[in-house]
């Protein structure tokens, strides 16, 4: 893992069609969500843009997708977001976007994010 990166997980921790949340640093107030769609991993802050500062979206640990698994869902007010783009397509924050987090995959399959994501998590908390 290169300097300035924080390791979240291994690629195999996120099977196809699932999502999980990881704290970029212990004690950080916001998770980074990692979603696997079609073998491609997408990263977003766990912060629904409905309210300023963002609010956590799962209804239970790692429960970030809607029932059909087609969208990232905020289980506060039912907003749905496209997995590939983070765009809200239904619900209170229609037209807004989740904050994308760039993911880096190492040769051994480790998934990491830029260290400043933890700071971002702190601000958004």
């Amino acid at each position: 893992m290169s300097a300035g990166q924080l390791r979240l997980c291994h690629r195999d921790d996120i099977p196809e069609g699932t999502a999980r949340g990881f704290l970029p640093l212990p004690g950080a107030p916001r998770n980074v969500i990692v979603v696997n769609r079609g073998g491609r991993l997408h990263g977003y802050m766990d912060a629904c843009p409905h309210y300023r500062g963002g609010t956590p979206m799962a209804w239970r640990r790692d429960a970030y997708l809607n029932g059909e698994g087609t969208h990232i869902a905020c289980h506060a007010h039912g907003a749905l977001f496209e997995i590939e783009t983070g765009a809200c397509v239904s619900g209170p924050c229609l037209g807004r976007n989740l904050t994308r987090v760039p993911l880096t995959e190492a040769e051994d399959g480790s998934i990491s994010v830029p260290a400043q994501v933890a700071g971002r998590a702190a601000r958004e908390g």
Binding site: P56, A58, A63, H75, H77
Partner: peptide, 9 residues
């Protein structure tokens, strides 16, 4: 208040 799979709190 808690999030829920019913899309309401």
């Amino acid at each position: 208040y808690f999030n829920s799979p019913l899309g309401v709190h």
